[in-house]
Design a protein around this nucleic acid. Structure first.
Lengths: 204, 204
DNA sequence: AAATGATTTAATCAAATGATTAAAATATAT
DNA sequence: ATATATTTTAATCATTTGATTAAATCATTT
């Protein structure tokens, strides 16, 4: 595909990845054409093929990069054995919301690609291990009483992620506008940990 | 497209719609071919065109039918002026979860099609009006104190919908299996109203 | 059994798309 | 300056796909 690495090449590769990320997020894998990407990157299909070989290859490189970035932020929080459950929920909510505010369509996109069967790229990330073997789950289990701790995990992640999943709907239907959405998500950084506390304590 | 209505015709139309619903949900609009649908329906592309004219037409007919069915269940709950907020949350959670258990991929599907720009079919459903002008929102606003009631609406809907959005991920990663998922959602019918109560009361 | 409508078969069209190639042009390193 | 790497242009190929058609077959009604 290529033989030596120089500066301009790296710039092109980055430019293409950035454009691909944008277009894939907008249109999904199937609806995106390599011509779309080439145009968005201000280049041509021949160069995409020169650097990435195929559309699927480009897609996987781009997505894997994003997933790794997110996991890189969450893992230290999940596995930390010195912080309390409350601190972890705080950190989780804070990091997660910040990350997604920066990339608002990522969640819906990933979930959908998985639903369609494109989950090679996420299986490689091994996030089940993170959930199952983490210190966080151990702590959550202790706080859950006789309710399955997964029920609480669902609700925590739901309250973080769902607004991003619903975002296109609520913006399209003018329920909330772009700025108000951002504002609400920042407000949620405080609300969600509070709510989780009330839920976990309320059941004792 | 057709001239007279008889029995076998109606059966064919239903058969095609059912197959289309199934395939569209599995693969999304762009990835689904009319040949896929024809095969799933045990028929042929010529008949699809005979009855529906185009792929997009078939898609919109099928999706609109589903949306209307869901709204038909939720509207009476949202607009009822004789029930308490607590009763509404109970009814909402119960109806919504029942509906989605019957059609587990519908949510992800709809959200994604909207994200891709295929929202003609949902704009027609006017669900913004339902949310804004409903008696439910009036009651929720009263219970919300100085927090934006939309924050609570997000969380209520999130806790109902999110597990269905995450379902493909959690089943794929073997976090929870099919049966356990069903069981947990039934359990959630009791948990969510309880939690919402705790959250709404906790902030007084 | 004749007529009408519904369905199938089989083929074809035009357009879009992923992929590939050759050749020219451009930039960079040494 | 020369060689090498990168990028562009432009064209082409094979496939897939949505759409359409004509003719044959099947089912139902009358």
């Amino acid at each position: 595909m290529k033989k030596k690495a120089r500066d301009p090449e790296a710039a092109s590769v980055a430019k293409i990845k950035k454009a691909a990320h944008k277009v894939f997020l907008q249109k999904g894998f199937a609806s995106t054409t390599i011509r779309d990407i080439a145009e968005a990157a201000g280049t041509n299909v021949a160069l995409l093929n020169y650097h990435f070989g195929s559309k699927k290859n480009l897609f996987e490189e781009v997505m894997l990069e994003k997933i790794r970035e997110l996991l890189g932020r969450l893992t230290p929080i999940f596995t930390n054995e010195t912080t309390t459950l409350e601190q972890k929920v705080n950190g989780l909510v804070d990091s997660y919301i910040d990350f997604l505010l920066n990339d608002p369509d990522l969640v819906t996109f990933i979930l959908n690609e998985i639903r369609k069967g494109n989950f090679d790229f996420i299986v490689k990330a091994r996030l089940d291990e993170l959930v199952h073997q983490s210190f966080f789950m151990k702590q959550l289990k202790e706080a859950s009483g006789d309710v399955n701790p997964i029920q609480f995990l669902f609700s925590i992640v739901a309250m973080i992620i769902f607004p991003f999943v619903a975002r296109p709907v609520i913006i399209q239907t003018k329920l909330v506008d772009q700025d108000a959405f951002q504002q609400m998500m920042l407000e949620r950084k405080k609300l969600i940990p509070l709510w989780i506390n009330q839920i976990l304590n309320g059941k004792k």
